[in-house]
Design a protein around this nucleic acid. Sequence first.
DNA 1: ATGGCGTGCTCTGCACGA
Length: 260
Amino acid sequence: MPFTLATWNVNSLRQRLPQVLDWLRRVRPDVLAIQETKLSDHEFPVMAFAEIGYQPLINGQKGYNGVALIARHRMSRPVTELPGDPDDLQRRLLGAACGPLYLLNLYVPNGSEVGSDKYRYKLSWLERLHLFTAELLRREAHLVLLGDFNIAPADEDVHDPAAWQGKVLVSEPERQALRDLLALGLEDCFRRFDQPPGSYSWWDYRGGAFERNDGLRIDLILASAGLAAACSECRIDTRPRALEGPSDHAPVVATFDLHS
DNA sequence: ATGGCGTGCTCTGCACGA
């Protein structure tokens, strides 16, 4: 029975709600992980999703960050922070069991500039994620990490690798942190399949970057080894990025053919 | 080198994003 997962950084759910609802009605994934809702929990449009058959699990924050899992199935065992997170918690993570899977929806810190305080915060956040992922892999049979990783895994995920070399989202310490995470036993579902060159999930709003396909692939779906083998498709849906008033990210969708 | 675009708050400029 196919199980479809998607991730989308919506860059304000307040601004994007009609587009997100339209997309869910068309694509009907089992779960959509969204990032950058920029909404407090009490502002979240629960009813709008319920009306189209989806139940949200939310971890919100006023103005910045904020993540949610929108699912057609019951979710359980929620997790809203990483062990060791500072007290002034940024709402960047939401885990839950959903059907046969345990999902971890991530909005990895951007990092601002290599060498900045925010960059160091990004690397320390990735270290905490690494430790927590190792723990989850020990107890969950089928684990998926999905979301806005704010790291382009390799040069093929970057429209102009020479211009981006050493910059935030591409720098070696960030890529090494991602490789270390994968080495725990996760696979980048998108790269299990032949993909068109120039496949990206984010394009700057400025300078007609989307029209020129000047983008980065920073939105990822990582599956534990046994589960990745059941992944039958993974693609980036660029259509919403072409709409009027889009998010700067496109949704990424993966389908798993699970037995039993 | 800068700003370019979009969003939300401190709200008519600023911080932040990628």
